[in-house]
Nucleic acid binder design. Structure first.
Lengths: 385, 385
DNA sequence: TTTTAGCACTCGTGAGGCTTGAGTGCTAAA
DNA sequence: TTTAGCACTCAAGCCTCACGAGTGCTAAAA
């Protein structure tokens, strides 16, 4: 019994493992015999397996993983001593650490990264039942966009059992062009202006007038404005405003311009958050100081508000993962963030994501975030056509 | 020097205090000499003063207050022993407790209640500068209603240094009546319907049609619908729907009815929260278990969602204070809630409030909540006319 | 050369005991 | 009725000790 299988992966003893892998890469036996020199951090098949087990075990139990656990729980046909030797290697390469001499091993950020990219089984996504449940929650009721997003945050948090963040939609094209304007009388001198842009954004704005006005008159103004301002940007309106007749329509046009401008210049996305309690129920946050840090980050921290625009601007439209801040965001040292974009390509985009301890179920989290972002994308498309 | 002053309040020694108070009430000296028998829990002037000092001291320091502190810090011209005697009385009456024999005194919920109702100096509200700052934050930018509320939560939290909750507006009149409907073409077969009710509520709804339609045609339908559906409720539309001509306008009318119905039947207020971290920075929440409880309550707890409708329905329109749950809400045992209503009387109302430890600065909190609710009320009035 | 058994070593954890100091409650005198 | 004085209680901090989990190293076996 030289070979064994764990989770369908063939494992050989150290030498054999190296040979196999190296053969597939270069065939140079000399190098292989000692150490893979080209890429000093490449791992043997067995090391990969052990790393995988350590990560998985640590994710579920939250306690440092001992060599014994690896061997007996997962029935590896090697001794604990062998596993310990491999662990020393893994530690030297930076994939794992241990908190103190007599403790088991804990994955490092690098270890998690390797796990996410090479070892994790992608299969374990959301079940069909779960997807159905989520869909139901979304299509049960009529909602405003902001309520959808709030709901999305809540559902995401519950599904991934972690804190969720959802950012509001954000226009990518910088110049809104007017498609239609409509004026509606609310009260004697109070008028609701509804703007629809070519991009499909809808914006309401309340206006108060000096003089009372009837709906009939307003309708006439609407028609006139629609004729004169079709397909223009706010800047174009402003330049035309100089030689505009000095009547009410001039005021209305200026308000149209202003509202379009606000629409274009608003860059601060709203962020909906939910499920903070999930994070704090994790054992790594039994320390009050950490709890406060995390709360600070999610409630008002700058890290998220820097990351979200980056994700929106990113070329890669797939799921983005930041593990333990990965030296870019010091505040996030203890947390991982999994983010996906939603919206209409090139027009409008938002972000849905999960924030949790680095020790999170990445597979499930990724699936969740991905699925919710797809759902939201459909939703946005339906709403805007 | 038999008399002394603290914060402008005249104090006499025990006997004298009782005489003074009792003389103003009944003049029956017999009763006064022993104990005020009519109301067994009425306090002597000196007891009130000591209670006040204990509450104030505990609010600022968060540590049990010893007799020594009361005497030396506030320069009472009595000995610590005397204060201790009074403390025993106060404790017997339920206004204070002490966590263990060798600890100082801590106000009970009853003690806080007495403090808020009889001892607290109401003067210490927000300064003019603070009010200005708050106003600035509100009037700086154009916002949607939901953004106002979110902002309100954030400002309230910051001002009161505690967690804030703001509920969205909620219609009190149950029957919305249509004032105006407008149809706007978004895309070939996608139509935006904007409803305005007599109550001043505005509601957007997207419709998708089987056949393409032009804006001109839509305008005609708008006019027709406005004529036919003026001032009706959703139920009235539904009854008329039976003998309605089988054309597009029938579909449109039914969608109007449906949208009005959704408007009327929506009773779940959205709640905006902010400033959780303020609570957790308080020393009484250095215990993880409590932190989790609090988080649970504020994030998803049922207590708040029961209290808010109560406040909306309450006859008293003033600030409502619930101290430590006061036996009604067990979850809130550790917290106090200060709430005020905002909105238009008899039409629409929401709630703004603060959630914090029972040991909070009630004076400041009350002022803050009151001021923000006034601001929001003005805002709502401006928006709706 | 790789694997393994065996053993010494490290270090966190929790229990038990001790001291300290804060603050009360009571008593007896003013 | 007030106060000085003192005994008593109890939490908190600190020390020590024993335990056990888990490692790292070595020397022998495969």
């Amino acid at each position: 019994m030289e070979d064994f299988e764990v989770n369908g992966t063939q494992l050989n003893k150290r030498a054999a493992g190296k040979k196999t892998r190296a053969a597939g890469e270069s065939g140079n036996l000399e190098k292989v015999e000692k150490k893979p020199s080209l890429d000093s951090s490449s791992l043997s098949e067995r090391q990969r397996e052990i790393l995988k087990l350590i990560v998985q075990e640590f994710i579920t139990t939250a306690t440092p993983v001992s060599s014994e656990t690896v061997v007996y729980k997962y029935r590896l046909p090697v001794s604990t001593a062998t596993v310990r030797n491999e662990m020393v290697d893994l530690e030297r390469e930076g994939y794992i650490t241990h908190p103190h001499t007599s403790a088991g091993r804990v994955p490092s950020d690098v270890g998690y990264r390797y796990y996410v990219e090479h070892l994790m089984e992608r299969s374990g996504g959301l079940s069909l039942v779960e997807k159905r449940t989520i869909q139901h929650q979304f299509y049960q009721i009529q909602l405003e966009m902001n309520e959808w997003l709030r709901l999305a945050a809540s559902v995401t948090a519950r599904t991934a059992q972690n804190a969720a963040v959802v950012s509001s939609l954000h226009n990518i094209e910088s110049e809104s062009r007017l498609k239609h304007v409509q004026l509606i009388e609310i009260q004697e001198r109070l008028v609701l202006m509804v703007l629809v842009t070519q991009q499909g954004t809808i914006k309401e704005q309340m206006l108060s007038l000096e003089e009372p006005i009837t709906q009939e008159e307003l309708s006439i103004f609407s028609t006139r404005l629609n004729g004169q301002l079709h397909n223009v940007t706010w800047k174009q309106i402003e330049t035309r405003l100089n030689d505009w007749p000095q009547d009410l329509s001039r005021y209305l046009a200026s308000r149209v311009a202003e509202t379009l401008r606000v629409l274009d210049q608003r860059h601060d996305a709203q962020i909906y958050r939910d499920g903070l309690s999930h994070i704090l129920n994790q054992p790594e946050f039994s320390d009050i100081v950490r709890v406060r840090q995390v709360l600070e980050i999610i409630e008002s921290g700058v890290a998220l508000t820097t990351i979200i625009p980056e994700v929106i601007a990113a070329e890669d439209s797939g799921v983005q993962i930041i593990i333990g801040g990965e030296n870019r965001y010091d505040d996030l040292r203890l947390l991982s963030v999994v983010l996906a974009r939603y919206g209409i390509d090139g027009q409008t985009a938002g972000v849905v994501g999960i924030v949790g301890p680095t020790r999170m179920e990445y597979g499930r989290t990724i699936s969740t975030v991905q699925y919710i972002s797809e759902l939201l994308t459909t939703l946005v498309n339906e709403r805007r056509g």
